[in-house]
């Protein structure tokens, strides 16, 4: 059964079995590999995307429930790595292997939209369900706080 939704600003239709998780539609059907598979049980956050602006774990999100919704993946965040969160990430030299970072960045972007000037404790609480085996938490914490400053300077959330 075909499902139509908005993906990174463009209307997209796929025809796969309805229970297929959004993650695999993105990766295997649409070849958008920036969204990662880490656990498949909503335990690691590597697959985080935005659905109607909210962070969602695409590995447990059936494609049928995405119908008519707005999906943003890491590839759709900016054309040129100019999103303040991306800039802050580079500035903090946060990624190591990089595998978890799409999910980290998407989680941070959704969080900062709701909480534009977070305390370090709020950052910790918001980011703690994302796993990074390379241990980049300290740099991510710094990057999220810095991104918030950049966003304030640029006149609010994007």
């Amino acid at each position: 059964m075909p499902v139509t939704f908005e993906l990174n600003g463009r209307s997209t239709t796929v025809d796969v079995s309805p229970e297929t998780p959004l993650l695999w539609v993105l990766r295997d059907t649409l070849n958008l590999t920036g969204t990662k598979y880490g656990c498949g049980i909503a335990a690691c956050g590597a697959c985080t995307v935005h659905i109607d602006g909210e962070a969602a774990r695409s590995c447990v999100y059936p494609i049928s429930s995405v119908s008519a919704k707005r999906v943003t993946t890491i590839e759709g965040l900016s054309m040129d790595r100019s999103h303040p969160v991306q800039e802050a990430w580079i500035e903090a030299q946060a990624p190591q292997c990089g595998y978890c970072q799409s999910g980290q960045i998407m989680t941070a972007v959704a969080f900062l939209k709701k909480t534009p000037s977070p305390t370090p404790q709020q950052v910790d609480a918001a980011m703690s369900d994302n796993i990074c085996r390379c241990g980049t938490a300290q740099r991510i914490r710094k990057a999220v706080l810095h991104a918030s400053e950049l966003m304030q300077a640029q006149g609010g959330a994007r």
Binding site: G34, E75, L77, P95
Partner: peptide, 16 residues
């Protein structure tokens, strides 16, 4: 050098 591509989904791992 490898960091920018790890912030926009363009870094390709084996699974990609």
């Amino acid at each position: 050098k490898d960091i920018p591509s790890k912030t926009d989904g363009s870094a390709r791992f084996g699974i990609d």
